[in-house]
Design a protein around this nucleic acid. Structure first.
Length: 352
DNA sequence: AATCCGGGGGG
DNA sequence: CCCCCAGGATT
């Protein structure tokens, strides 16, 4: 038994009863597919029911106002989907005589319909031999065949489409495509799939090589996080500075730095000094000796904004020895510190 | 090739 | 908190 036959057997035994599967009406299938883009079936279901009831035909849809569409769409997200649907519905009426097309070549010309959706509508409504590749299919193919090309790279999109095309049951494209998607959604799930009940347990690459959790591969977008650090330079009457060791689960792991508070946005002095995390470091401020400018420090994946507050204090406050060390200013260089902090201390105290 | 567009659920 | 979901349009 080949892959497609095995898959379809699984599908017939396990598929969910979903309303858009009980029709060949390209319009209703379109409605479901647009709603389900980047949306879970459970979340999209009530919207499909609302829309199909409010607009039984594409003609009726085309006569709606944008406000009406958006009101029904409310809460579903990606609102351009709703606006694009209205645009497309009008075009079906004007250019397709009100008959929703089922041919891939026609569908792909419509706003809001890309390769996946055109393949889905054409195969589901008219059994056209176009293979769908959605998030479920990427995952299934990557694991089963052990493909580690990133699914969100140009090369990945092309090669996964080619694999899916190759696998397609040309005589039963609609059901094959439904089965691919359903299998990815129910059996070959993103997290903790139950491989013990999988019909492909003997032939799956990822299961055999214990790579279920490593596939598919996806390129991560390097997002730069902005962090605002406010460092305290506490100086006592013996000319000692309080330093502390950093945790291991963050930048500058294990290095020494200064007592600090982190914010997610820029913060000003009064609020700063009243912050509970600051107050724990001192009893009484003798004098605020200096407040530095905000210093920008760029790391690979983080943008740090640092400001230093130099404060003289009367005594060695009862610091837990695990949490802070008083160090003579001219012995600071004995401790490994982030460049940002060392450079600043060096600048204001002129030690080596 | 990157970025934007959302709300919701699960680990 | 991060990832993912029946993706597509825009730059």
């Amino acid at each position: 038994m080949n892959f497609s036959n095995e898959l379809i057997t699984w599908y017939r035994n396990n598929k969910r009863d979903l309303p858009w599967r009980n029709t060949n009406d390209a319009y209703l299938i379109w409605l479901s597919e647009i709603i389900l883009q980047q949306t879970r079936v459970e979340q999209g279901m009530p919207y499909f029911l609302k829309f199909s009831e409010a607009f039984p035909t594409v003609k009726r849809f085309s006569e709606a106002s944008e406000d009406e569409i958006l009101r029904l769409w409310q809460g579903l997200g990606y609102y351009s989907r709703g606006r694009n649907m209205l645009k497309t519905a009008k075009r079906i009426v004007s250019d397709f005589n009100g008959v929703f097309p089922s041919a891939y070549a026609d569908l792909i010309t419509l706003t809001g319909i890309g390769e996946y959706t055109a393949a889905a509508i054409s195969s589901f409504s008219n059994n056209e031999a176009k293979a769908v590749v959605d998030g479920n299919v990427y995952r299934l193919l990557a694991r089963y065949f052990g493909i580690d090309t990133p699914i969100n790279s140009t090369e990945g999109k092309k090669s996964f489409q080619a694999v899916a095309d190759d696998l397609l049951d040309l005589n039963n494209a609609g059901e094959h495509n439904q089965a691919m998607i359903e299998f990815g959604a129910l059996q070959c799930k993103p997290k903790n799939p139950n491989c013990q009940i999988c019909p492909f347990i003997q032939s799956c690459y990822a299961y055999k090589h214990q790579k279920i959790n490593d596939l598919p591969v996806k390129l991560k977008k390097l997002k730069i996080k902005e962090r605002y650090f406010y460092f305290l330079i506490l100086i006592n009457e013996q000319n000692e500075i309080l330093i502390k060791r950093r945790n291991n689960n963050d930048i500058w792991a294990g290095l020494y730095d200064l007592p600090s508070v982190e914010f997610t946005e820029t913060t000003e002095l009064p609020e700063l000094l009243n912050h509970a995390d600051y107050k724990k470091w001192f009893k009484k401020i003798l004098a605020i000796k200096s407040v530095s400018e905000k210093i920008k420090h760029i790391l690979t994946h983080q943008k740090i904004y640092a400001q230093f507050l130099e404060i003289s204090v009367a005594e060695k406050y009862n610091i837990n020895t695990n949490d802070g060390i008083w160090v003579k200013v001219d012995e600071i260089y004995n401790y490994g510190m982030p460049k940002l902090i060392f450079a600043f201390l060096q600048k204001i105290h002129k030690f080596n």
